[in-house]
Design a binder for these strands. Sequence first.
DNA 1: TAAGTTTATCGTAAAATACCGATATAAGGA
DNA 2: TCCTTATATCGGTATTTTACGATAAACTTA
Lengths: 119, 119
Amino acid sequence: MEKYPLSSEDQRLAAMLKALGNPVRFRIMRIIANNKMCITGDVVEFTDLAQSTVSQHLKILREAGLLKAEVEGSATSLCLNDEGIRWMKAKIDDWLPECCPTIDLRRFVVNHKQGFSGK
Amino acid sequence: MEKYPLSSEDQRLAAMLKALGNPVRFRIMRIIANNKMCITGDVVEFTDLAQSTVSQHLKILREAGLLKAEVEGSATSLCLNDEGIRWMKAKIDDWLPECCPTIDLRRFVVNHKQGFSGK
DNA sequence: TAAGTTTATCGTAAAATACCGATATAAGGA
DNA sequence: TCCTTATATCGGTATTTTACGATAAACTTA
């Protein structure tokens, strides 16, 4: 049981994708990318959400390695986490390099379930 | 309010990332990729989960455009959704092409909040 | 020092998700 | 036809996530 466990890198990648998979957070990333740089309050203004909610989302994005935050006085400046995003892109890119074969192997596989080595 | 709304393509991308962001589903994708092709029952065997649960996850992956399923007799053969995965990779790749600037603009931005055009 | 800004954190309610067992469906074989 | 196999779907529950207001913390300015 539990064959093909996820490597720690895969776990990290899955966590990043999960963080980015939320529409609100996806949009926050876009906002920050479009403005190059901004502070938390700016993000809140682009949103219909409470400040505390946005703060939570930002924390999740930060912990996932997608954003960087730096306290500047009483404000917090935000920017994309260059390194993290590049890592994610590279990981996604060499993930599943091989896709569906064009020939139809399905009938074969199904009809040979007994001999299937997967178990 | 609600500036920078997500395009329908972005919404689709976010949905794909959300589907893939779940560790169980991420692993299911790996299982199917590694075995090139398999049927639902095979995936269940690689898992500690109930058949109904796996079936749900497969449905989500299918609806997200990450998997293809084809009924073959009483079984369902599964394979990666070539087209969907390529689309996702391409989208991710040209997403956020520009990352953090190396020069430090933060202090500037913060100190010029009054003039910030983002509101 | 006192008041104002900006953000993070806490507690909690509501919504969404994950999981299971039971059941339904549909094909294949005896 | 009846039984088996493989899967999907349904109903319910437990867990997780999302959202909010209130409050705390840290800095700035008057």
